[in-house]
Structure formats: structure tokens, C-alpha cells
């Protein structure tokens, strides 16, 4: 939709350059990049070289891969996009956290939803201990406080074994 309106006006595809925090530059069509609200606003302000100080090359490469695929989205390739999304969220938790931080900073809503959903699905059945470790959170409860919080909803801690693995 966006690509047809911008290219029909100029006859040429407008290109933009994204620069990662490692200094690598990526040239992309504007129509692909404007899925990202943060960049869209910068483009509207007249920028064509966009420095992204919070996004490293590894993460930016993945994000560009996502935006390219989703720019192709039509009525007929829903299944293909679905499979792409499935593969896209398969990385380690640390990779997912890097991506979700970048998606949040760049305001790519679809990617943000996808990542939050997949992280939530992956931790849903994990033990409290495993989740603390995965998110690098230290337990700031005293043993008494922790027991009190747990007792409030004891039943939620029951009903089967929770997953202790960290991946």
C-alpha cells in the first residue's frame, strides 16, 4: 500500500540508509522501513541516513529480515508469513530480549506483539526459579515475604511440575 503511493509519485523507489551501533550501514527501500514508526517519523522530518545507536548489527540484520518479509504480506501468503514468524522466534532468550528491546525502541508493533507472545508462551510453564534466571532477576523477597505471596495463591503453584530448563 505504502510502496505504491510513494513510488508512483516519484517513479523511483526512494532508498534509506540505516546505520547500526557497530557502524554498519544497510540500504533499504523506504516502503520497507516505514513499518517502523520511529524511522517513519525521522523520514517525515527529512532524514535519509538513520543512525540507530541502540541496535547492533546482529539485531538489525534480523529486524531487516523481518521487515522485508512482512512488506511482502498479501492476502494469499498468510501461511508463508505464519511459518516465517514461527522460525523467527526460535532463537535463544537473550537474542529474543535483544530483539524485543529493539522492536520496542523502533516501534514496530507487529514484531513487538509477535515477540512478547512468543516469550510469554515460552515462560508460561517454567518454574519461578527458571524465570528469575532467564530474566536475570535477583529475588528481593525475604523468605517470610516470599512465603506470604505464595500463600495468597497457593493453588496457582500446584498442579503438576514446572519446567526448570533455561531455554
Amino acid at each position: 500500500m505504502a510502496s505504491s503511493s510513494s513510488s508512483s509519485k516519484t517513479g523511483l523507489k526512494k532508498m534509506l540508509t540505516l546505520k547500526s551501533s557497530d557502524g554498519d550501514e544497510f540500504e533499504l527501500e523506504e516502503s520497507i522501513v516505514i513499518q517502523c514508526q520511529t524511522i517513519k517519523h525521522m523520514v517525515e522530518d527529512g532524514f535519509s541516513l538513520i543512525p540507530l545507536q541502540n541496535v547492533d548489527t546482529k539485531t538489525l540484520t534480523k529486524i531487516i529480515e523481518y521487515m522485508k518479509k512482512h512488506a511482502e504480506k498479501t492476502e494469499s501468503n498468510k501461511e508463508e508469513i505464519k511459518n516465517f514468524n514461527k522460525e523467527f522466534v526460535k532463537g535463544s532468550f537473550d537474542d529474543q530480549f535483544e530483539l524485543v528491546s529493539a522492536a520496542n525502541y523502533l516501534h514496530i508493533n507487529g514484531l513487538m506483539d509477535l515477540l512478547c507472545q512468543s516469550i510469554a508462551d515460552r515462560i508460561n510453564n517454567k518454574s519461578v526459579r527458571a524465570v528469575r534466571e532467564i530474566f536475570n532477576i535477583s529475588n528481593d523477597y525475604t523468605p517470610d515475604e516470599e512465603e506470604k505471596v505464595r500463600d495468597e495463591h497457593k493453588w496457582a503453584h500446584e498442579g503438576g511440575e514446572f519446567d526448570e530448563s533455561l531455554d
Partner: peptide, 26 residues
């Protein structure tokens, strides 16, 4: 650590029972 707004976005996707359990995290 992930900032609070991202943690909240992830928590919004969880079912109630898990949320009650995860009150024990911190």
C-alpha cells in the same frame, strides 16, 4: 534487565494462573 514497559508487554500475554504464580518472582 529488560525495562518495565517491555516486561509488562510480555506479562500481558500470560494466562491468569501463571501471573499469580509469577508474583513470586520479585
Amino acid at each position: 534487565n529488560l525495562p518495565e514497559d517491555i516486561i509488562n508487554s510480555i506479562l500481558l500475554e500470560l494466562p491468569v494462573k501463571s501471573l499469580l504464580r509469577f508474583k513470586s518472582i520479585c
